[in-house]
């Protein structure tokens, strides 16, 4: 069989120079498909808002996922953010600070949790990623993940706990609880940094740059 005989009809069209912008139907379909996949990929993995993020642990997309989960889990109703505490973005920043210094194995698990949540809509054949859903739908996604049990349920518990770590460390959330906060900020006995009390500890610490005894 000659090369020309082996061509498919689409290839024949290309040879004839017909079709949109000299494009074969196959190439058109391929490019269209690639475009859709690309758009989905961008929609899935890119285009996060450019809001300033200076986190040390969480990547920007993870911070967005954290804030989106907070908006679903913390308010009385998803999306109706309470006025007394930090913003969802501040919750994410609080969580970022809290996670600093976590063991690497645990950080890997946390990153896996964020991937699962952000892309978890795929489990239900959803097209839009978690952060692009309305708050009520986000809660549905989180509960779907939880209901799968085992490690999925642990991921739900993980993001739920992080929401409250980020929310309840803020002083402004305490009044509703009747909690009067730090004793060192109230009237009362002074904390230790009085010179006479802190001095004994300072005397135990080597000067910066000091070399320990016994260096070989």
């Amino acid at each position: 069989m000659s090369e020309e005989e082996a061509k498919s009809p689409e290839d024949s069209e290309e040879a004839n120079g017909d079709g949109l912008l000299h494009m074969t139907r196959r190439k058109f379909l391929w490019l269209t498909g690639a475009g859709v996949v690309g758009a989905l990929a961008v929609g899935r993995f890119g285009c996060y808002s450019t809001e300033q993020w200076e986190g040390q642990v969480l990547a920007r997309w993870e911070a967005h996922t954290m804030a989106a989960a907070a908006l679903a889990l913390i308010p009385d109703e998803p999306g109706r953010w309470p006025t007394e505490g930090p913003t969802p973005w501040e919750v994410a920043a609080n969580v970022d600070r809290y996670l600093s210094g976590m063991p690497q194995a645990m950080l890997r698990e946390i990153r896996g949790m964020f991937v699962l949540i952000e892309q978890g809509t795929l489990l239900g054949c959803g097209i839009r990623r978690f952060t692009r859903l309305p708050a009520a739908k986000r809660l549905d996604v989180l509960l779907t993940i939880r209901d799968r049990g085992e490690m999925f349920a642990l991921a739900f518990e993980g993001i739920r706990a992080l929401c409250y770590v980020g929310w309840y460390q803020d002083d402004h959330t305490w009044q509703r609880l009747g909690y009067d906060g730090l004793m060192i900020q109230r009237e009362g006995p002074p904390a230790v940094p009085t010179p006479e009390q802190s001095a004994p500890y300072q005397e135990l610490v080597a000067e910066p740059g000091a070399v320990p005894r016994g260096v070989l």
Partner: peptide, 21 residues
């Protein structure tokens, strides 16, 4: 972590004093 830097805040002291924060 001497007492002079203990600030009674959970988000600071738990990472400072506890394993895996």
């Amino acid at each position: 972590v001497p007492p002079s830097v203990m600030n009674q805040r959970e988000e600071d002291m738990m990472p400072a004093l506890l394993r895996a924060n």
